[in-house]
Design a protein around this nucleic acid. Structure first.
Lengths: 343, 343
DNA sequence: TTTAAAATTACAATCGATTGCGTAAAATAT
DNA sequence: ATATTTTACGCAATCGATTGTAATTTTAAA
């Protein structure tokens, strides 16, 4: 790869016998430059195959027109959808996205954040990893005057912009659906309670019980069952209880629900007649299993759009007294075969 | 969001009564600066919460330490995996990734490329969109002296670095597997032939027939069946033929294979006994369907790693006479229920 | 003690684009 | 025709870090 001297505004200026400032103004469509020279400059720029050096431009302007995104994993449906949603909007606005993966590790997350601060990004969008200690690194982002937007998995105590799902409500609806379907002993596979999303989902679960005046059975609540394997493991325990559940709400994910389904199939337990299953996140596969899995759609792409729009809305906002917004998106219960008994 | 004056090397220099150049050198761990002052500088930098301004640094150094990635869709399993794989490597090396989606549209792809050239990225990694006209925009990348790496869906005529799958071989193995399984009338759902990957998969299909001395039946080859819907449509046509196929190789994707499975189920045709199905790409759901779908794993994350490693290998390479490399990754046939008759 | 060599540090230009300010030229008003 | 306002462009500083070269200090050798 040979080095190529790229044309600059000085090259254009030299060729036309004018100054770089005029060239710059012309290319920025400033009214300070004559229409004819403007045209000429643009034409020449095109001829010389000129591309503005964003580095120089941004350095001068003190911005980067770049947004950093930190997610646990890029290749996880929910996150890749959110990212796709963010990109849709930011692309139009001429902003770029820098993507980092924390791999669910606190340390790596800190590193990612530091990298992004280093990059002088204009905004950092993050969904925190499970392995979360303090939030010093996020505070650090704010201290650097960088906009911070949290989505889905948020650190509630931090005063930042947030885009979340109404997990309580979604969870409540899911469990209500199970109760109304006649399921009596509804188990919960819960996720790490240090993440608010999982706490909220549990809250919704409990709320439904209260609403329907059904007593909560503690032994049917399984901690830390947030992967397919852990979901399967929890299910095995649950189903070997003296009084096993007749429904399982895998509040952590569809992966977990899939683990439930696998175990049920392996044990010859019929779904949904003997066991109802409800997942979370509407992963693409949840529609394909047999029976298909009832789940909750989080509108992930839309969530990404919302995050991006929120950012652009806020950069225009000079009111420093305004409190950081939290936008809550109402998820939707998708009822499928795994909870429909009368079929 | 209030503006925050960020500390620069000049602030550090002023505080210590030295010059910025020494600060810069110290922070770059140059041997030109005394160990004691170096320590002092680093300590002070830390105290003042200094973060290097990458824009300025890169402007000066004439590089951006940034790699641009253009894919049809971020939220498509294969691509998000490749991106994750690229990120794993580039992150360690201190490079950033800018992600763009072409949305399978030629026009948007051109825009993406221009954006990335504007950004002065050091390398552009691309998997071209289906809607591909000429490759002028890619030539333009090369003309700007930017490294170009194509992966998976490549424009063969362009002399660039390439990382591809051995589609012919994979396809050949898949069809061989079907033939050896006793399937006699094996249909092919093929993708748009302007993409070399689909051409190669067809080639592998034909090669297997030749090898086993089986005549090719033209009416069993269905053009342009590369989505779930198109796959289903093609399957309906195939299965209503006077002599329907007893196996279908959905060479385009597992989505297409899923369409096949749906139609077979709807028509009450038993898989794999009456109809064998083989997909492509080992999407996560292919394991979950019943029966599970035989498919081809492309080692997508590894492919991403390979792309990134190739880049770092090439930047060290000053030999301009060297021909652009093509790295071919051998995919693996994953045999599952949908093609296993004797069970 | 003097001098040459080596190690540090300072100075200043540079990367490319932007922008406040000043001025000459053109357009308008008096 | 002269005064005044606009318009268009040039000048030069600036963003923050890097780096070649010059200057100074330190160390080692004579």
């Amino acid at each position: 790869m040979k080095k190529v001297k790229r044309t600059t505004i000085y090259d254009i200026a030299a060729k036309l016998g004018i100054t770089a400032s005029s060239v710059s103004r012309a290319l920025n469509n400033s009214s300070q430059v004559n229409e004819k020279t403007k045209e000429l400059i643009i034409k020449t720029a095109d001829e010389l195959n000129y591309k503005r050096n964003i580095l120089a431009s941004n350095l001068r302007k003190g911005q980067s027109k770049t947004i950093g995104v930190v997610v646990p994993r890029i290749n996880q449906n929910f996150f890749s959808n959110v990212i796709a949603g963010i990109e849709e909007i930011t692309y139009q606005k001429g902003y770029n996205l820098i993507i980092c993966q924390s791999g669910e590790q606190h340390e790596k997350e800190i590193q990612c954040i530091n990298t992004l601060i280093n990059q002088h990004v204009d905004c950092i969008v993050i969904s925190v990893s499970v392995d979360n200690g303090d939030y010093q690194h996020l505070q650090n982002v704010l201290d650097h005057g960088i906009q911070l937007i949290q989505f889905d998995r948020v650190a509630e105590e931090l005063e930042t912009l947030k885009v979340i799902n109404d997990n309580v409500q979604a969870s409540f609806e899911a469990v209500s659906h199970l109760i109304e379907g006649g399921y009596k002993r509804i188990a919960l596979l819960e996720g790490p309670q240090n993440l608010s999303i999982f706490k909220q989902r549990k809250e919704g679960y409990l709320k439904a019980f209260k609403m329907y005046n059904v007593p909560v059975i503690e032994e049917l609540i399984v901690e830390n069952a947030w992967t397919k394997e852990l979901g399967a493991e929890g299910t095995r325990k649950l189903l070997s209880l003296p009084h096993p559940p007749d429904a399982i709400f895998a509040s952590t994910s569809d992966f977990s629900a899939l683990g439930v389904l696998d175990v049920a199939n392996a044990m010859g337990i019929k779904v949904p007649s003997e066991l109802g299953i409800c997942g979370y996140a509407n992963e693409s596969f949840s529609e394909i299993t047999s029976p298909s899995i009832t789940t909750i759609d989080q509108f992930s792409v839309y969530m990404g759009n919302t995050v991006a729009n929120l950012f652009f809305q806020e950069i225009g906002n000079t009111d420093t007294t305004a409190k950081p917004k939290t936008i809550s998106i109402k998820p939707e219960l998708i009822i499928r075969g795994s909870t429909l008994r009368n079929r």
